[in-house]
C-alpha cells in the first residue's frame, strides 16, 4: 500500500507541480519581479508627482533561478500529494469513492485548506511588503492549515450538525484570533502590484490544487486496479 501511495503521489505531484510552475512563471513571476524593482529601490512611486510608468520590462527567463523554481514547485506539490493520497486511502477504506472525478472535489477542498484559508488573513505576500516575524507567521500558517484540513474532512465526511458546527468553528477560529501583523506599514511596493500578486497567486494555486486532486484520484484508482489484477493473477 505504501508503494501505491508513493507512486500515485509522485505521478500526480510531479505533473501538477510542473504545470503549476509554468503557470507561475508566466502569470506570477512578472508581478514578483516588478515588485522587486520597488523592494530594491530601483523604482520609487510615492508622491503626487510620481511619473513612474506602470509598465516595466521584467520579461526574460533566468535559467538557474527559474529552473530552481520549477524543481521546488514540483517538490512542494509532491509533498502535498503524499498527504492528499494518504488521506484518500483512509477515506476509501471508510467507503468513499476515489477517482479522477471525485478527486476534483478533493482538490477544491485542498485549495481551501492549504492556500485560501491561511491566505484569507495572511495574503500571499509580494516581496517588499511589511510583515510580522516570519516564525510567528509560520506557526499561525501551520495551525490554520491543520484546523482548515480537519474542518474540510468534517464537512465532507461528518454526518451530524455537531460535526459541521465544529467544522465552522475550526474554519473561523484562526481568523477571529487573528494572524500576526506588522506593527507599522513600511512596504515600498505599490498596492496595485500587491493586490495583483495575491490574486494571481490564488488563481494559480486553485488550478494547481484542482489538477493535483484530479490526478491524485486518477492515479490512485489506476494503481489500485493494477495491483488488484496482479494479486488475482
Amino acid at each position: 500500500m505504501f508503494t501505491r501511495i508513493l507512486t500515485s503521489a509522485l505521478f500526480a505531484g510531479a505533473a501538477a507541480g510542473l504545470i503549476t510552475a509554468l503557470l507561475q512563471l508566466y502569470f506570477v513571476q512578472p508581478v514578483l519581479l516588478h515588485a522587486e524593482l520597488y523592494e530594491g529601490g530601483d523604482l520609487v512611486h510615492f508622491g503626487s508627482s510620481s511619473t513612474v510608468s506602470a509598465h516595466q520590462d521584467v520579461s526574460g527567463f533566468e535559467a538557474v533561478r527559474d529552473g530552481l523554481s520549477v524543481v521546488f514547485t514540483m517538490l512542494v506539490y509532491s509533498g502535498y500529494a503524499m498527504v492528499l493520497v494518504a488521506l484518500m486511502s483512509q477515506a476509501e477504506e471508510r467507503g468513499a469513492t476515489i477517482n479522477g472525478r471525485t478527486g476534483l472535489m478533493w482538490g477544491v477542498a485542498g485549495f481551501v485548506a492549504v492556500h485560501f484559508a491561511p491566505g484569507f488573513s495572511l495574503a500571499p505576500e509580494v516581496p517588499g511588503v511589511a510583515a510580522a516575524d516570519v516564525g510567528d507567521r509560520q506557526i499561525w500558517w501551520f495551525a490554520t492549515v491543520l484546523t482548515a484540513t480537519l474542518a474540510m474532512w468534517l464537512i465532507a465526511f461528518g454526518k451530524s450538525w455537531t460535526a459541521w458546527g465544529a467544522a465552522a468553528i475550526l474554519l473561523l477560529a484562526p481568523h477571529v484570533i487573528g494572524a500576526p501583523e506588522p506593527a507599522v506599514f513600511t512596504g515600498p511596493v505599490p498596492t496595485e502590484i500587491g493586490a495583483h500578486f495575491a490574486a494571481r497567486a490564488f488563481g494559480v494555486g486553485m488550478v494547481a490544487w484542482v489538477l493535483l486532486g484530479c490526478l491524485a484520484g486518477y492515479f490512485w484508482q489506476r494503481e489500485g486496479t493494477g495491483s488488484a489484477n496482479g494479486q488475482a493473477a
Partner: peptide, 13 residues
C-alpha cells in the same frame, strides 16, 4: 525556493 514560497503563499523572509 524564494519565488515559489512567495507564489505559493507561504510566509517568507
Amino acid at each position: 525556493a524564494h519565488d515559489v514560497r512567495h507564489a505559493t503563499g507561504f510566509p517568507c523572509h
